[in-house]
């Protein structure tokens, strides 16, 4: 099984040189720590920055520089700042290469639910609906099952939908899977020590297994 850092490290392997990337809140934010230093990538913050840098030192904290999670940040050399309309223009226009976000549920068609749980306080969708509707490549970081053991990789989402047919790849604590265009989760890799059978039991939606499934390598 992978912990949160393991999931982040595995997703970091999907990053390619020259990418513009939007990272969601939670595990996706951790991915930034594991992108190989040799790759030149630019991180987008949807409140209006291309070029997110590391968290500031105490003396460099600036209330005018925050990320979409409202954390204080710094800017990399060569950054650019813009309005929220410009920011979502570049998202909607398909200029961001990779979007990494969390999910509560994903369906075998690639539908994602990650903004609202009936009966709980509704906090709002923020930029999630805009991101999933327009991103060219979406990788989801999530737990394979809920705390009570119910699968979160489903035939159909049960929670309110954030976007339809948009998820391309999923990295969970148990596995790496592609959502294929004709529907279904294609198993690509197993987390260390996890069997195909365990993944099958934890996946309610259609699981496609062909040939030997390798373990994730770091």
């Amino acid at each position: 099984m992978l912990d949160k850092i393991g999931i982040a490290k595995r997703i970091a392997q999907e990053v390619r040189d020259g990418m513009y990337i939007n990272l969601g809140i939670g595990i996706p934010t951790l991915v930034a720590n594991y992108i190989p230093k040799a790759l030149n990538v630019v991180l987008q913050s949807e409140n209006g920055l291309l070029g997110i840098g590391p968290f500031p030192t105490e003396e460099n904290v600036d209330a005018d520089l925050i990320n979409a999670g409202k954390q204080t940040i710094t800017m990399m050399p060569g950054s650019s700042l813009f309005s929220s309309a410009e920011s979502f223009g570049m998202i909607r226009g398909g200029h961001v290469d990779l979007t990494i976000l969390g999910a509560m549920e994903v369906s075998e068609a690639g539908d994602i639910a990650n903004w609202k749980v009936p009966g709980k306080m509704v906090k709002g969708m923020g930029g999630a609906m805009d991101l999933v509707a327009s991103a060219k490549n979406i990788i989801v970081a999530m737990q394979h099952c809920s705390k009570d053991g119910a699968s979160k990789l489903l035939k159909q989402c049960t929670l309110p939908i954030t976007g339809l047919k948009c998820v391309k790849k999923i990295v969970t604590d148990l596995a790496v899977l592609d959502v294929i265009p004709e529907g279904g989760f294609k198993l690509l890799e197993r987390a260390p020590g996890v069997s195909v059978d365990e993944i099958r039991k934890a996946t309610e939606g259609k699981l496609i297994v062909s040939g030997e499934i390798p373990e994730i390598k770091f």
Partner: peptide
Amino acid sequence: EVELIPQGTLAERCR
């Protein structure tokens, strides 16, 4: 009363 709007849609509706 609350109306929740996707962030990019909110920005563009203002624009």
